[in-house]
Amino acid sequence: MSAVTPGGHRTGVALRAVLALYPARYRRDRGAELAEVFADTTAGAGRLGTAREALDLAAYGLRLRTGLTSTALGGRLLAAAAPLLAGATAGLVALPGDVRFWRVRAAARAGFDAPWTALPDNLALLGLTVVPALLAVAAAFGAWRAVRTLAGTVVLLAVVRLGVRLATANVRPGGPWLTEPNVWLLLLDATALLPYLAAGALILAAPADLLERPRRLPVLTGAAAGLLVTKAQGGYDTWHLMDGWTPLLLLLAPLLLMLCAARERLLPAALGLAVLPLTAWFSLFSLWEQVGGVWRLAPALAVGAGTLLLAGRVLSGRQEGKVKTP
C-alpha cells in the first residue's frame, strides 16, 4: 500500500475503505495493483477528481461483491432485463378509471397553485407519470446514458413520495398516530411506490457495457407486461385488494421464471425479473391482509423461499452437469 502516500493520508483511508468493498480473494490478487493505478490517476487530481475515481473503484468492487459484473450471471440477467424493466416501469402508468388517474389529474390541474406543503408530492407524482414514459422511449432507441439518468430520476421521485408519505403518516413509534389504519394506509401507499424504486434501482445496477443496442421489442413486451400486472392488481391503490390465489400467482410466477437463469435461459428469467418489482409488494401486502399478519405470513414465506432456493440449486446443478459432459 505504499502507493497510497502520493494522495495523502485521507486518500489512503478512503482507498482502504473502497478496497474493503472488494471480495477478499480479488483484493488479495489485485489490491496492490488497484492501489497503484488509483494513486497514479489521483496524483494532483484534486478532491473532486479523487472522489470520482474512488466512487468508480467502489462501484466495481460492489459489482464484484454482488455478482453484477458484465461477465457474471447476475449482471447478464440484469442487462437482459433492463429494457423490459424500462418498458414495465412505463406500464405502471395510471389509466382512466384508476384511482391514481384522478390524483394525477388533480395534481396537474393544481400545478404551482397547490399549497406549498402539497407541492413536492404533486410534482413527484407528475414526474412519476412522465419520466417512466421517457425512460421507455430512451431504452427503445438505445440511449442508455439517458436511460440511466432517467432511472435515477425515477428512484429519486419515488424516494420523495415515500418520504412525504412517511412524514405525513406521522407513525412514530409510541406516537398517537401509530394506529393500525394509519400503518395500513402507509403500507398501501408504499406498495404503489416501491415498484418505481425497485425497477429504477435494477436498471441502474445493470452493467453499462452490456447495454448498447436499441431494444424496441423487449421495451414493448415489458410495457405490455407492466400494464397487464398493474391492471391485474387493480392499479396498486384500489380499495378492493386481491383475494384468493391472484397475489400468490403474481408473486410466484415471476420468481419461477427467474429460476430459468440457473439454466442460462436469460430471456424468461429477465421477464420474471422485470415483472417481480411490480408485483412483489402489492402481492405481499395482499397476502399479509388475507393471512392476517406478518407472523402468520412468515412461515409461508420461509417455505416458499426454501422451495425456490432448492429448485434453483437443482436446476443450476443439472446445468453444471450438462456443461461438464463432453
Binding site: 489485485r30 488497484l34 493505478v37 488509483f38 490517476t41 470520482r52 475515481e53 468508480d56 473503484l57 467502489a58 462501484a59 466495481y60 468492487g61 459489482r63 459484473t69 458484465s70 461477465t71 452493467p207 457495457d209
Partner: peptide
Amino acid sequence: RTGTLYGALD
C-alpha cells in the same frame, strides 16, 4: 477510471 478499466480488463 480505475474501476471501469479493471471491469473491462476482467
